[in-house]
Nucleic acid binder design. Structure first.
Lengths: 197, 197
DNA sequence: ATAGTCCGGTCATTCGTTTGATTGATGTTG
DNA sequence: CAACATCAATCAAACGAATGACCGGACTAT
Protein backbone atom coordinates (compact mmCIF):
# COMPACT_ATOMS: atom_id res chain seq x y z
CA UNK A 1 0.00 0.00 0.00
CA UNK A 2 1.26 3.44 -0.86
CA UNK A 3 2.87 5.24 2.02
CA UNK A 4 1.08 8.25 3.47
CA UNK A 5 -2.11 6.82 2.10
CA UNK A 6 -4.04 7.98 5.13
CA UNK A 7 -2.63 11.45 4.90
CA UNK A 8 -3.43 11.77 1.22
CA UNK A 9 -6.92 10.33 1.57
CA UNK A 10 -7.70 12.68 4.43
CA UNK A 11 -6.71 15.80 2.49
CA UNK A 12 -8.53 14.61 -0.62
CA UNK A 13 -11.70 13.94 1.35
CA UNK A 14 -11.44 17.14 3.38
CA UNK A 15 -11.10 19.52 0.42
CA UNK A 16 -14.66 19.31 -0.90
CA UNK A 17 -16.14 19.01 2.59
CA UNK A 18 -14.38 22.04 4.08
CA UNK A 19 -15.07 23.95 0.85
CA UNK A 20 -18.78 23.26 1.05
CA UNK A 21 -19.39 23.86 4.73
CA UNK A 22 -16.40 25.64 6.17
CA UNK A 23 -14.09 24.67 9.01
CA UNK A 24 -16.87 24.54 11.60
CA UNK A 25 -19.47 22.94 9.35
CA UNK A 26 -17.77 19.57 9.11
CA UNK A 27 -16.86 17.11 11.85
CA UNK A 28 -13.66 15.11 11.95
CA UNK A 29 -15.78 11.97 12.07
CA UNK A 30 -17.44 12.83 8.76
CA UNK A 31 -14.07 13.49 7.16
CA UNK A 32 -12.53 10.29 8.48
CA UNK A 33 -15.51 8.25 7.32
CA UNK A 34 -15.41 9.84 3.86
CA UNK A 35 -11.68 9.19 3.64
CA UNK A 36 -12.14 5.60 4.79
CA UNK A 37 -9.60 6.18 7.51
CA UNK A 38 -9.52 5.92 11.27
CA UNK A 39 -10.58 9.00 13.19
CA UNK A 40 -7.38 9.31 15.16
CA UNK A 41 -5.29 9.62 11.99
CA UNK A 42 -6.26 13.30 11.82
CA UNK A 43 -4.52 14.03 15.10
CA UNK A 44 -1.70 11.69 14.20
CA UNK A 45 -0.83 13.31 10.89
CA UNK A 46 -2.03 16.89 11.28
CA UNK A 47 -2.13 17.47 15.02
CA UNK A 48 -5.88 18.00 14.93
CA UNK A 49 -8.71 19.35 12.87
CA UNK A 50 -7.23 22.81 12.40
CA UNK A 51 -3.99 21.26 11.25
CA UNK A 52 -5.81 19.33 8.56
CA UNK A 53 -7.61 22.49 7.51
CA UNK A 54 -4.31 24.35 7.32
CA UNK A 55 -2.83 21.57 5.19
CA UNK A 56 -5.80 21.80 2.83
CA UNK A 57 -5.45 25.58 2.54
CA UNK A 58 -1.72 25.36 1.96
CA UNK A 59 -2.33 22.88 -0.84
CA UNK A 60 -5.02 25.02 -2.44
CA UNK A 61 -3.31 28.39 -2.24
CA UNK A 62 0.08 27.15 -3.40
CA UNK A 63 -1.44 27.00 -6.88
CA UNK A 64 -2.27 30.70 -6.75
CA UNK A 65 1.38 31.61 -6.69
CA UNK A 66 1.88 30.48 -10.28
CA UNK A 67 0.75 34.03 -10.97
CA UNK A 68 4.19 35.13 -9.83
CA UNK A 69 5.37 34.20 -13.31
CA UNK A 70 3.48 37.11 -14.81
CA UNK A 71 5.58 39.52 -12.82
CA UNK A 72 8.74 38.35 -14.52
CA UNK A 73 7.54 38.30 -18.12
CA UNK A 74 8.58 40.91 -20.64
CA UNK A 75 5.24 41.78 -22.17
CA UNK A 76 3.22 44.97 -22.21
CA UNK A 77 0.87 45.88 -19.41
CA UNK A 78 -2.43 44.94 -20.99
CA UNK A 79 -1.06 41.55 -21.92
CA UNK A 80 -0.11 41.02 -18.30
CA UNK A 81 -3.66 41.77 -17.25
CA UNK A 82 -5.01 39.28 -19.76
CA UNK A 83 -2.55 36.71 -18.49
CA UNK A 84 -3.83 37.37 -14.99
CA UNK A 85 -7.45 36.86 -16.00
CA UNK A 86 -6.50 33.71 -17.89
CA UNK A 87 -4.52 32.41 -14.92
CA UNK A 88 -7.46 32.97 -12.57
CA UNK A 89 -9.84 31.13 -14.86
CA UNK A 90 -7.38 28.27 -15.24
CA UNK A 91 -6.85 28.07 -11.47
CA UNK A 92 -10.55 27.90 -10.77
CA UNK A 93 -11.04 25.19 -13.37
CA UNK A 94 -8.14 23.13 -12.07
CA UNK A 95 -9.05 23.75 -8.44
CA UNK A 96 -12.84 23.90 -8.33
CA UNK A 97 -12.79 24.49 -4.58
CA UNK A 98 -10.16 27.21 -4.45
CA UNK A 99 -12.62 30.09 -4.74
CA UNK A 100 -14.69 28.66 -1.89
CA UNK A 101 -11.71 28.74 0.45
CA UNK A 102 -10.74 32.14 -0.92
CA UNK A 103 -14.05 33.81 -0.12
CA UNK A 104 -14.77 31.73 2.94
CA UNK A 105 -11.55 32.99 4.55
CA UNK A 106 -12.25 36.56 3.45
CA UNK A 107 -15.69 36.41 4.99
CA UNK A 108 -15.21 34.20 8.04
CA UNK A 109 -11.48 34.20 8.65
CA UNK A 110 -9.80 31.45 10.63
CA UNK A 111 -6.27 31.64 12.03
CA UNK A 112 -5.11 30.51 8.58
CA UNK A 113 -6.20 33.77 7.01
CA UNK A 114 -3.24 35.79 8.27
CA UNK A 115 -0.67 33.07 7.67
CA UNK A 116 -1.76 31.50 4.38
CA UNK A 117 -4.59 33.29 2.61
CA UNK A 118 -3.86 36.97 3.06
CA UNK A 119 -0.20 36.76 1.98
CA UNK A 120 -1.13 34.81 -1.16
CA UNK A 121 -3.90 37.18 -2.22
CA UNK A 122 -1.87 40.25 -1.34
CA UNK A 123 1.01 39.06 -3.47
CA UNK A 124 -1.25 38.70 -6.50
CA UNK A 125 -2.72 42.15 -6.03
CA UNK A 126 0.70 43.69 -5.65
CA UNK A 127 1.82 42.11 -8.90
CA UNK A 128 -1.16 43.67 -10.64
CA UNK A 129 -0.50 47.06 -9.07
CA UNK A 130 3.12 46.94 -10.17
CA UNK A 131 2.04 46.12 -13.71
CA UNK A 132 -0.52 48.90 -13.74
CA UNK A 133 1.91 51.45 -12.36
CA UNK A 134 4.38 50.62 -15.09
CA UNK A 135 1.77 51.17 -17.79
CA UNK A 136 0.65 54.28 -15.99
CA UNK A 137 4.12 55.78 -16.01
CA UNK A 138 4.29 55.03 -19.73
CA UNK A 139 1.18 57.20 -20.15
CA UNK A 140 -0.80 54.25 -21.47
CA UNK A 141 -3.74 54.85 -19.17
CA UNK A 142 -5.94 57.83 -18.43
CA UNK A 143 -4.48 60.29 -15.94
CA UNK A 144 -7.23 60.24 -13.36
CA UNK A 145 -7.14 56.50 -12.75
CA UNK A 146 -6.20 55.14 -9.36
CA UNK A 147 -3.93 52.07 -9.63
CA UNK A 148 -5.47 50.12 -6.74
CA UNK A 149 -9.05 50.88 -7.73
CA UNK A 150 -8.35 49.95 -11.34
CA UNK A 151 -6.68 46.70 -10.47
CA UNK A 152 -9.39 45.73 -8.00
CA UNK A 153 -11.97 46.43 -10.67
CA UNK A 154 -10.39 43.88 -12.97
CA UNK A 155 -9.96 41.35 -10.19
CA UNK A 156 -13.54 41.94 -9.12
CA UNK A 157 -14.95 41.30 -12.57
CA UNK A 158 -13.38 37.88 -12.95
CA UNK A 159 -13.65 36.67 -9.35
CA UNK A 160 -17.21 37.79 -8.81
CA UNK A 161 -18.29 35.99 -11.96
CA UNK A 162 -17.32 32.68 -10.36
CA UNK A 163 -18.50 33.64 -6.89
CA UNK A 164 -22.01 34.48 -8.02
CA UNK A 165 -22.41 31.26 -10.01
CA UNK A 166 -24.87 29.66 -7.54
CA UNK A 167 -27.25 32.52 -8.30
CA UNK A 168 -26.69 32.94 -12.03
CA UNK A 169 -26.50 29.30 -13.05
CA UNK A 170 -29.95 29.64 -14.59
CA UNK A 171 -29.11 32.88 -16.37
CA UNK A 172 -25.86 32.04 -18.09
CA UNK A 173 -23.75 29.09 -19.15
CA UNK A 174 -20.91 28.74 -16.65
CA UNK A 175 -19.24 25.86 -18.43
CA UNK A 176 -15.69 25.89 -19.66
CA UNK A 177 -16.96 26.33 -23.22
CA UNK A 178 -17.63 29.96 -22.59
CA UNK A 179 -14.35 30.79 -20.84
CA UNK A 180 -12.79 32.40 -23.92
CA UNK A 181 -15.83 34.56 -24.50
CA UNK A 182 -15.80 35.60 -20.84
CA UNK A 183 -12.12 36.51 -20.92
CA UNK A 184 -12.54 38.51 -24.11
CA UNK A 185 -15.56 40.25 -22.66
CA UNK A 186 -13.91 41.29 -19.43
CA UNK A 187 -10.69 42.37 -21.12
CA UNK A 188 -12.76 44.32 -23.61
CA UNK A 189 -14.57 46.32 -20.96
CA UNK A 190 -11.47 46.81 -18.86
CA UNK A 191 -9.22 47.80 -21.77
CA UNK A 192 -11.62 50.40 -23.12
CA UNK A 193 -12.26 51.49 -19.56
CA UNK A 194 -8.68 52.33 -18.70
CA UNK A 195 -6.94 53.12 -22.00
CA UNK A 196 -6.53 56.67 -23.22
CA UNK A 197 -9.39 57.79 -25.52
CA UNK B 1 -39.81 46.49 30.24
CA UNK B 2 -39.88 47.10 26.53
CA UNK B 3 -41.81 44.46 24.68
CA UNK B 4 -39.86 42.05 22.52
CA UNK B 5 -36.73 43.27 24.22
CA UNK B 6 -35.29 39.77 24.26
CA UNK B 7 -36.10 39.23 20.64
CA UNK B 8 -34.53 42.50 19.57
CA UNK B 9 -31.46 42.02 21.71
CA UNK B 10 -30.93 38.54 20.35
CA UNK B 11 -31.03 39.66 16.73
CA UNK B 12 -28.80 42.63 17.46
CA UNK B 13 -26.25 40.45 19.20
CA UNK B 14 -26.44 37.68 16.64
CA UNK B 15 -25.80 39.86 13.57
CA UNK B 16 -22.11 40.62 14.17
CA UNK B 17 -21.44 37.17 15.61
CA UNK B 18 -22.98 35.20 12.75
CA UNK B 19 -21.37 37.61 10.29
CA UNK B 20 -17.92 37.05 11.74
CA UNK B 21 -17.99 33.28 12.21
CA UNK B 22 -20.92 31.91 10.25
CA UNK B 23 -23.86 29.83 11.40
CA UNK B 24 -21.72 26.98 12.70
CA UNK B 25 -19.01 29.15 14.21
CA UNK B 26 -21.13 30.57 17.02
CA UNK B 27 -22.96 28.80 19.82
CA UNK B 28 -26.38 29.77 21.10
CA UNK B 29 -24.85 30.21 24.55
CA UNK B 30 -22.42 32.81 23.24
CA UNK B 31 -25.22 34.70 21.53
CA UNK B 32 -27.48 34.60 24.58
CA UNK B 33 -24.67 35.80 26.84
CA UNK B 34 -23.79 38.61 24.46
CA UNK B 35 -27.45 39.63 24.26
CA UNK B 36 -27.79 39.51 28.04
CA UNK B 37 -30.71 37.18 27.64
CA UNK B 38 -31.61 33.70 28.80
CA UNK B 39 -30.53 30.86 26.59
CA UNK B 40 -33.98 29.43 26.15
CA UNK B 41 -35.28 32.65 24.63
CA UNK B 42 -33.77 31.61 21.33
CA UNK B 43 -36.03 28.58 21.13
CA UNK B 44 -38.92 30.61 22.51
CA UNK B 45 -38.79 33.39 19.93
CA UNK B 46 -37.17 31.74 16.94
CA UNK B 47 -37.76 28.03 17.40
CA UNK B 48 -34.05 27.36 17.56
CA UNK B 49 -30.67 28.47 16.32
CA UNK B 50 -31.49 28.20 12.63
CA UNK B 51 -34.63 30.24 13.18
CA UNK B 52 -32.60 33.04 14.70
CA UNK B 53 -30.18 32.87 11.80
CA UNK B 54 -33.06 33.03 9.34
CA UNK B 55 -34.46 36.07 11.16
CA UNK B 56 -31.08 37.77 10.95
CA UNK B 57 -30.78 37.05 7.24
CA UNK B 58 -34.31 38.24 6.57
CA UNK B 59 -33.52 41.48 8.36
CA UNK B 60 -30.28 42.00 6.47
CA UNK B 61 -31.49 41.14 2.99
CA UNK B 62 -34.71 43.10 3.22
CA UNK B 63 -32.57 46.20 2.84
CA UNK B 64 -31.26 44.96 -0.47
CA UNK B 65 -34.69 45.20 -2.04
CA UNK B 66 -34.62 48.98 -1.95
CA UNK B 67 -32.87 48.50 -5.24
CA UNK B 68 -36.27 47.62 -6.68
CA UNK B 69 -36.86 51.38 -6.85
CA UNK B 70 -34.30 51.70 -9.60
CA UNK B 71 -36.36 49.48 -11.84
CA UNK B 72 -39.28 51.89 -11.74
CA UNK B 73 -37.40 55.13 -12.31
CA UNK B 74 -37.55 56.97 -15.60
CA UNK B 75 -33.88 57.72 -16.13
CA UNK B 76 -31.44 56.59 -18.78
CA UNK B 77 -29.57 53.33 -18.50
CA UNK B 78 -26.20 54.58 -17.36
CA UNK B 79 -27.87 56.60 -14.62
CA UNK B 80 -29.57 53.43 -13.44
CA UNK B 81 -26.20 51.71 -13.21
CA UNK B 82 -24.78 54.55 -11.18
CA UNK B 83 -27.81 54.41 -8.90
CA UNK B 84 -27.14 50.72 -8.44
CA UNK B 85 -23.51 51.27 -7.50
CA UNK B 86 -24.53 54.06 -5.14
CA UNK B 87 -27.22 51.88 -3.58
CA UNK B 88 -24.75 49.06 -2.99
CA UNK B 89 -22.26 51.38 -1.31
CA UNK B 90 -25.00 52.90 0.83
CA UNK B 91 -26.30 49.44 1.82
CA UNK B 92 -22.86 48.27 2.86
CA UNK B 93 -22.30 51.41 4.91
CA UNK B 94 -25.68 51.16 6.63
CA UNK B 95 -25.41 47.39 7.07
CA UNK B 96 -21.74 46.70 7.68
CA UNK B 97 -22.43 42.96 8.01
CA UNK B 98 -24.60 42.51 4.95
CA UNK B 99 -21.72 41.60 2.64
CA UNK B 100 -20.49 38.98 5.09
CA UNK B 101 -23.85 37.18 4.99
CA UNK B 102 -24.00 37.71 1.24
CA UNK B 103 -20.70 36.00 0.50
CA UNK B 104 -20.93 33.53 3.36
CA UNK B 105 -24.17 32.16 1.91
CA UNK B 106 -22.74 32.13 -1.61
CA UNK B 107 -19.73 30.18 -0.43
CA UNK B 108 -21.13 27.95 2.32
CA UNK B 109 -24.87 27.96 1.74
CA UNK B 110 -27.31 27.08 4.52
CA UNK B 111 -30.98 26.23 3.96
CA UNK B 112 -31.57 30.00 3.98
CA UNK B 113 -29.73 30.42 0.71
CA UNK B 114 -32.53 29.15 -1.49
CA UNK B 115 -35.31 30.85 0.45
CA UNK B 116 -33.82 34.23 1.35
CA UNK B 117 -30.47 34.99 -0.21
CA UNK B 118 -30.72 33.67 -3.75
CA UNK B 119 -34.09 35.31 -4.52
CA UNK B 120 -32.86 38.67 -3.24
CA UNK B 121 -29.61 38.62 -5.21
CA UNK B 122 -31.29 37.24 -8.31
CA UNK B 123 -33.84 40.03 -8.25
CA UNK B 124 -31.11 42.67 -8.19
CA UNK B 125 -29.26 41.06 -11.06
CA UNK B 126 -32.43 40.80 -13.11
CA UNK B 127 -33.11 44.48 -12.60
CA UNK B 128 -29.65 45.27 -13.91
CA UNK B 129 -30.08 42.96 -16.88
CA UNK B 130 -33.39 44.59 -17.73
CA UNK B 131 -31.78 48.02 -17.60
CA UNK B 132 -28.88 46.89 -19.74
CA UNK B 133 -31.11 45.25 -22.31
CA UNK B 134 -33.10 48.44 -22.66
CA UNK B 135 -29.97 50.47 -23.31
CA UNK B 136 -28.77 47.74 -25.63
CA UNK B 137 -31.91 47.88 -27.74
CA UNK B 138 -31.47 51.65 -27.94
CA UNK B 139 -28.05 50.99 -29.50
CA UNK B 140 -26.31 52.74 -26.61
CA UNK B 141 -23.80 49.96 -26.07
CA UNK B 142 -21.39 48.14 -28.29
CA UNK B 143 -22.92 45.31 -30.31
CA UNK B 144 -20.76 42.45 -29.12
CA UNK B 145 -21.52 42.90 -25.44
CA UNK B 146 -23.28 40.18 -23.52
CA UNK B 147 -25.90 41.62 -21.11
CA UNK B 148 -25.27 39.17 -18.26
CA UNK B 149 -21.48 39.35 -18.53
CA UNK B 150 -21.59 43.14 -18.64
CA UNK B 151 -23.88 43.46 -15.67
CA UNK B 152 -21.87 40.96 -13.62
CA UNK B 153 -18.73 42.93 -14.43
CA UNK B 154 -20.21 46.02 -12.87
CA UNK B 155 -21.55 44.14 -9.87
CA UNK B 156 -18.20 42.41 -9.48
CA UNK B 157 -16.26 45.66 -9.43
CA UNK B 158 -18.20 47.19 -6.57
CA UNK B 159 -18.83 44.06 -4.51
CA UNK B 160 -15.31 42.70 -4.75
CA UNK B 161 -13.92 46.03 -3.58
CA UNK B 162 -15.66 45.54 -0.24
CA UNK B 163 -15.07 41.81 -0.08
CA UNK B 164 -11.32 42.13 -0.47
CA UNK B 165 -11.03 44.84 2.19
CA UNK B 166 -9.38 42.54 4.79
CA UNK B 167 -6.49 42.14 2.36
CA UNK B 168 -6.24 45.66 0.95
CA UNK B 169 -6.75 47.64 4.13
CA UNK B 170 -3.07 48.51 4.12
CA UNK B 171 -3.04 49.45 0.44
CA UNK B 172 -5.98 51.79 0.19
CA UNK B 173 -8.27 53.91 2.33
CA UNK B 174 -11.57 52.06 2.71
CA UNK B 175 -13.28 54.80 4.70
CA UNK B 176 -16.46 56.49 3.67
CA UNK B 177 -14.46 59.57 2.64
CA UNK B 178 -13.40 57.86 -0.52
CA UNK B 179 -16.80 56.48 -1.54
CA UNK B 180 -17.47 59.20 -4.11
CA UNK B 181 -14.08 58.70 -5.71
CA UNK B 182 -14.66 54.95 -5.82
CA UNK B 183 -18.08 55.33 -7.43
CA UNK B 184 -16.76 57.78 -10.02
CA UNK B 185 -13.86 55.46 -10.74
CA UNK B 186 -15.94 52.35 -11.26
CA UNK B 187 -18.56 54.16 -13.33
CA UNK B 188 -15.79 55.68 -15.37
CA UNK B 189 -14.25 52.36 -16.30
CA UNK B 190 -17.59 50.68 -16.85
CA UNK B 191 -19.04 53.52 -18.93
CA UNK B 192 -16.06 53.74 -21.25
CA UNK B 193 -16.00 49.97 -21.31
CA UNK B 194 -19.49 49.45 -22.60
CA UNK B 195 -20.43 52.64 -24.48
CA UNK B 196 -20.02 52.90 -28.22
CA UNK B 197 -16.60 54.36 -29.04
C1' DA C 1 -56.86 34.68 36.84
C1' DT C 2 -54.44 34.09 32.79
C1' DA C 3 -51.82 34.72 28.87
C1' DG C 4 -47.38 36.15 27.69
C1' DT C 5 -42.71 36.31 29.10
C1' DC C 6 -38.69 34.75 31.27
C1' DC C 7 -35.51 31.69 33.87
C1' DG C 8 -32.65 27.80 36.00
C1' DG C 9 -31.74 23.32 35.22
C1' DT C 10 -31.32 19.22 32.47
C1' DC C 11 -31.56 16.22 28.45
C1' DA C 12 -29.35 13.33 24.85
C1' DT C 13 -25.95 14.19 21.23
C1' DT C 14 -22.08 15.33 19.16
C1' DC C 15 -17.73 17.36 19.32
C1' DG C 16 -12.29 17.05 19.03
C1' DT C 17 -8.94 14.64 21.21
C1' DT C 18 -6.47 10.97 23.51
C1' DT C 19 -5.41 6.40 25.11
C1' DG C 20 -3.63 1.82 25.01
C1' DA C 21 -3.41 -2.23 22.30
C1' DT C 22 -2.18 -4.42 17.94
C1' DT C 23 -0.12 -4.91 13.58
C1' DG C 24 3.61 -5.68 10.37
C1' DA C 25 7.84 -4.53 8.57
C1' DT C 26 12.70 -3.86 9.64
C1' DG C 27 16.85 -4.26 12.07
C1' DT C 28 19.74 -6.54 15.62
C1' DT C 29 21.85 -9.94 18.14
C1' DG C 30 23.45 -14.47 19.70
C1' DC D 1 18.93 -18.81 11.12
C1' DA D 2 16.07 -17.85 14.83
C1' DA D 3 14.72 -15.10 18.59
C1' DC D 4 14.15 -10.62 20.02
C1' DA D 5 13.71 -5.52 19.86
C1' DT D 6 12.24 -1.33 17.62
C1' DC D 7 9.43 1.60 15.21
C1' DA D 8 5.78 3.93 12.70
C1' DA D 9 1.11 3.07 11.46
C1' DT D 10 -3.44 1.86 12.52
C1' DC D 11 -7.30 0.63 15.26
C1' DA D 12 -11.45 0.46 18.58
C1' DA D 13 -12.78 2.57 22.52
C1' DA D 14 -13.38 6.07 25.63
C1' DC D 15 -12.65 10.81 27.49
C1' DG D 16 -14.43 15.34 29.02
C1' DA D 17 -16.27 19.29 27.18
C1' DA D 18 -19.49 21.63 24.53
C1' DT D 19 -23.53 21.65 21.80
C1' DG D 20 -28.75 22.66 20.69
C1' DA D 21 -33.08 21.77 22.51
C1' DC D 22 -36.38 21.57 25.97
C1' DC D 23 -39.12 21.27 30.34
C1' DG D 24 -41.55 22.92 34.42
C1' DG D 25 -42.10 26.56 37.15
C1' DA D 26 -41.92 31.56 38.36
C1' DC D 27 -42.76 36.22 37.34
C1' DT D 28 -45.49 40.24 35.44
C1' DA D 29 -49.01 43.12 33.62
C1' DT D 30 -53.60 43.42 32.41
Amino acid sequence: MAENDCRTNLIAAAIPMFAAKGLNGVSVRDIAREAGVNLSMISYYFGGKEGLYAAVLTDQFASLLKIEDIDRMEVDTLQKFEMYVRAIVTRYREYPYLLRFYTSELTNPTPCFETIVKPAIKRVIEILITAFSKGFSHQEFRDNLHPVDSVLSLAGMINFYFLIEPVTEGLIDHSQNRDEELIRHIMDIFTRGVLKS
